[in-house]
Design a protein around this nucleic acid. Structure first.
Length: 577
DNA sequence: GCCGTTTTCGGCCCGACTGTTTTCAGTCG
């Protein structure tokens, strides 16, 4: 079983226990464990195989949950979960996904109207039966109808680039009102999560009421979910929710911290403050006297809040409770997290020689415009016929052309390379005598994604034995909303990469974000270095670099971990065979 | 069910908005 599956089961158990009105802290323990598991950088099954005692070191996992995890990874099932689920009709717990419906109302609906799934609920709402229940009314019924409509659309989360674009548009809408003195993005978008469920905005305003009216008047708002003086929410046509909070200037830093999250990060900070007898909330950090009087200690900026807790300011990408708080307390946060301006080139791009849309000159011009010092042209190899992949003969001719052009170009170095396919048996799609002539070789899997774990791992390890390979491109092969990662023993691949001096790619193309943040952290732990590449097939895709940087930062990578932050001469030394 | 520089027992983050009430419970983040 995967971490995702185990974490989902714990969440469902928590839902079930809450409906059964069990101890709320027991419920919370399951949720904490689920969260903790989904943030892990290694698979539980692997930890279990190697040394199951290690499971105890995972925060939120104690004696009981450890046992449940062991049962799941060894048998693929959990008896406790199975019997628990038998107590509910099928689809009953799904109703908790409806906005505005929690365990308390759900129990009422079951006991008084005999509702057991979303379909029953929809009919009851349409027939107006909810109004008659104490504590519910017409509004509740209308809201639930809207929630069900949204639920049916199954609108998922947005990918980070799309969310960024939407958020920018909302900020410029706010800018047009004249009432907003400041507006900043918070939430998972600021932390750079690969998908974003809703957009959070924090603002300062002169006239809160007018400001909120303006916000609610956003042209793409489908409906206004809530509107108050300090907090409002709208939902967009796409089903995405946008929340805004307006705070006072002296609280802005505390509020930004609070609404950036993650929740786990915040909970830990609060506990830390509480131990000092202080209190942290979205308005600031306060000293609480014995008589209960509160004195403000900090709140205007995030830096104030962190430093009043005797810790370093923590970059938003790290705020996932993966050890950043401990590091900030000790003053050992990574000093030189990689940033966009560190990047000196792109080492994986395509041109019209295979399936790119721009020719090499356009790509070079665009790269120069970004201030890059070098770029590697890496078109496809012959296996990818449909993309115009090259055989040895065409490749060598192409390399010659690239070198000719490179000789004419001032201010940028152009490397002749290839994105060579890894065949099913782990051989490469091109002969060594051709690879040898190139400056850089990027190897990648584009076929046979569903091989068994052992075969897939052996395949890739064998490819890495080829001494001409410099970069392993998009190692997991996943596409966030379309295709899951290949089955692979990542640790073995990372160890081999470290040993063979092969750089692991963080690919920003489309839905890849591959490696992801957790992979980056683990690969670094095992001694790997990285290349952040756009895999651009047209000039505009060269602009996707920041998304790879965010992933790298979330994996705690520093400048020196990343090949394409190196100067040209250092780069050439690093990829010398 | 977890956890420990207050603790192996007794805690476990905190505040805003909504709807249905008339002082608050439920939900959400």
């Amino acid at each position: 079983m995967t971490n995702k599956q185990i974490s989902d089961i714990f969440l469902r158990i928590a839902d079930a226990l809450e409906i059964k009105d069990e101890n709320i802290f027991r419920v919370r323990a399951y949720r904490t464990a689920a969260q903790s598991i989904s943030g892990l950088t290694r698979e539980l099954s692997e930890i279990y195989r190697e040394d199951s005692a290690e499971l105890n070191n995972i925060p939120g996992i104690g004696k009981d949950l450890k046992k449940k995890i062991e049962e799941m990874v060894s048998t693929g099932k959990l008896e406790y979960y199975r019997t628990l689920m038998e107590e509910f009709p099928k689809g009953f717990l799904d109703m908790l996904d409806l906005a505005g419906l929690g365990p308390k109302k759900l129990i009422k609906l079951r006991d008084e109207l005999n509702i057991s799934n979303v379909h029953d609920l929809e009919i009851a709402c349409i027939e107006g039966r909810l109004e008659k229940i104490e504590g519910m009314g017409l509004k509740t019924q209308e809201k639930l109808i809207a929630s069900i409509k949204h639920f049916k659309k199954k609108e998922g989360r947005m990918l980070l680039p799309e969310a960024h674009e939407r958020a920018r548009d909302i900020l410029s809408h706010l800018g047009r009102s004249g009432n907003f003195k400041k507006a900043e993005i918070a939430g998972s978008l600021r932390r750079g999560s690969e998908t974003v469920g809703d957009i959070d905005i924090l603002a300062l305003a002169d006239d809160e009421e007018k400001a909120m009216d303006h916000f609610a008047g956003y042209p793409y708002a489908e409906r206004v979910i809530a509107k108050g003086m300090t907090k409002s929410s709208i939902s967009l046509e796409s089903g995405v929710q946008v929340d805004i909070r307006i705070v006072k200037e002296e609280s802005f830093g505390a509020a930004l911290l609070y609404f950036t999250g993650s929740k786990e990060h915040n909970v830990k900070l609060r506990a830390l403050a509480k131990r000092k007898g202080w209190k942290v909330n979205e308005y600031g950090i306060f000293r609480v006297s014995k008589s209960g009087k509160e004195t403000r200690v900090a709140g205007r900026t995030e830096e104030d809040v962190y430093s009043s807790l005797d810790m370093q300011w923590i970059p938003p990408e790290l705020r996932e409770n993966r050890g950043e708080i401990e590091a900030a307390l000790e003053g050992t946060l990574p000093k030189d997290l990689v940033k966009v301006s560190d990047i000196k080139g792109d080492l994986h791009i395509h041109t019209t020689a295979s399936d790119g849309k721009a020719d090499i000159m356009d790509m070079i011009k665009a790269a120069k415009k970004k201030g890059y010092k070098y770029i590697a042209v890496t078109d496809h190899s012959k296996l990818i016929k449909i993309a115009g992949g090259m055989d040895e003969k065409r490749l060598l001719k192409r390399a010659e052309e690239i070198r000719k052009i490179a000789g004419r170009e001032k201010g940028i170095k152009v490397l002749a390379g290839i994105e060579v396919d890894i065949l099913e048996d782990g051989r490469l799609d091109l002969e060594d005598h051709a690879l040898k002539e190139l400056d850089i070789v990027v190897a990648a899997v584009h076929s046979k994604f569903s091989l068994k774990r052992e075969e897939q791992t052996a395949r890739i390890l064998r490819a890495m034995d080829n001494k001409y390979v410099n970069i392993l491109a998009h190692p997991s092969g996943r596409l966030i909303t379309k295709r899951s990662a290949i089955e692979l023993d990542f640790d073995s691949v990372f160890r081999k990469a470290a040993e063979k001096n092969i750089f692991m790619e963080i690919n920003t193309h489309g839905e890849r974000a591959d490696l992801n943040d957790a992979h980056c952290a683990r690969a670094k732990e095992l001694g790997c270095r990285f290349a952040i590449n756009t895999d651009a097939h047209e000039t505009i895709q060269l602009d996707d670099m920041p998304y790879g940087i965010i992933t790298a930062r979330r994996g705690w990578l520093v400048k020196d971990d990343v090949l394409n932050t190196y100067s040209f001469s250092k780069l050439m030394k690093a990829i010398k065979r």
